[in-house]
Design a binder for these strands. Structure first.
Lengths: 250, 250
DNA sequence: TGTAAATGAATGATTTTGATTGATTTTTGA
DNA sequence: TCAAAAATCAATCAAAATCATTCATTTACA
């Protein structure tokens, strides 16, 4: 039996069973233990499978790639400062939209306004919001597994029934020419619509997002006030020509 | 049996039952007590489960000691049985609605159908659904703090955009004259609309709900198939005259 | 035919396993 | 409530299974 044949057979068996014993493979291929071991070593090096004691297993997806938990350790302090600053803009009686994301999530504990109503597409925000006894509306729609954000047609439909005093949006890129951007077009549409439905809009982004642009455009710079944590004077002037910008001092 | 296989099996069993006894695992895997203990130690270190005296439990489960293992499983046993039975009705390719509530939540780990899509108004269901990689849509609307269910105008609006092969509804009362009832009128409206939008409807309720009625009516008995855990023959005949009823055997 | 690659058997090292021990925790029953 | 009994536990150890490595032999192919 050819090496390539064996490799194919091994991977097929693995795909079917998720775990295979070395002895099973010896039988299935009528080759020696040594050969199978060599095969497994090679296939492991090629990242086609994962060796385990006694055989091999599928290399199942490394759970949460950049899940909320992992992300939350990144630039956390800056994000907290930005969030705290943004929370000031919420005033008594406001009806606001809070976008899904780690920065906007940080806002919630810092909101002290009374009698507000919050609408959000971030399932992760719920716990913090209910903890503070804030009446909360969730958008409908498809749940994005990685970020637990609500997106898609359903989210847009739900949004259409509301309008807001203020909205707070997280973005992945702020760029003088390309405006506000985020990687997922579905999310971009939700953010974009929320902006349109708000009397006043705020975009939250730490300095790593400045002068960056990603795939899907949300809106032009003019559409919102930027809140960020750090910006040299040259860039500040550039952006100030287009829209209001708040730089949080450390 | 390979270590990998055992670990998978242990976690699967745990996901279904929430608590497992060490002896059950010994039987299920046909390995020795020592081996299972080692497995549990390792899985605990990996934060995949929590060891309790006599076995293991899910992580996010409330802190309750071994007594949980005996008693809590007893209290929840009926609901779990009903849920497990109901989960059988979900078939490959189905698009289903799962109502908020503890009994319906129990269904999720027992669903084995492929390529299904789930719509729900229960925020608590999300974790279990995403864990199983089931594409999930959430209704919009107001969050009810106590139960984390989505209700109100927004929820009804969201629902209108869907239709289902099957729906699984929890109720607080089933009564020959008053039909299906639940205490909160807002929730009743959501349940009622979900029923109307389904080709086939199932109502899940343990025996304590039989012959009871509460404030808000959801629908007449005819509107759904009842799944319950215990019913004397006299009552069974009474209900069978009106609708299909499945009694789960212990 | 000659050469390089692949194979299989043998070696000793490493890992996993199940049984046993005595310690600890929980349950039982007075 | 308490103490004895039962169940469960962690730790240890030897046997079994699996491992990486080496080396002689076979196979593939120019």
């Amino acid at each position: 039996m050819l090496t390539e044949e064996r490799h194919r057979l091994i991977l097929d068996l693995l795909a079917e069973k998720k775990v295979v014993k070395l002895q099973e493979l010896v039988e299935a291929t009528s080759s020696s233990e040594s050969t199978i071991r060599r095969d497994l070593s090679q296939l492991e090096k090629e990242k086609k499978l994962r060796r385990v004691h006694g055989g091999a297993a599928l290399l199942h997806q490394k759970r949460e790639e950049l899940s909320v938990l992992e992300k939350s350790t990144k630039n956390m302090e800056e994000k907290r400062l930005i969030a705290q600053y943004a929370a000031q803009f919420v005033q008594d009686g406001d009806c606001i939209y809070i976008d899904a994301g780690t920065t906007t999530l940080e806002m919630i504990p810092h909101i002290h306004a009374k009698d507000i109503v919050v609408v959000t597409n971030g399932v992760t925000h719920l716990e913090a919001l209910l903890e503070k006894d804030i009446p909360t509306y969730l958008l409908g729609g498809l749940i994005k597994k990685k970020t637990k954000a609500l997106i898609g047609r359903g989210a847009l439909h739900s949004l259409e029934h509301y309008s807001f005093d203020k909205c707070f949006i997280g973005v992945n890129g702020i760029h003088h020419d390309f405006g506000y951007t985020t990687p997922d077009p579905e999310e971009a549409m939700v953010k974009s619509l929320a902006l349109k439905l708000s009397r006043q809009a705020y975009v939250l982004a730490d300095h790593s997002k400045m002068n960056e642009s990603t795939f899907a455009k949300i809106a032009d710079l003019e559409a919102a006030t930027i809140i960020t944590d750090e910006l040299d004077d040259e860039l500040l002037a550039l952006y100030e020509a287009k829209t209001a910008i708040e730089v949080v001092k450390k």
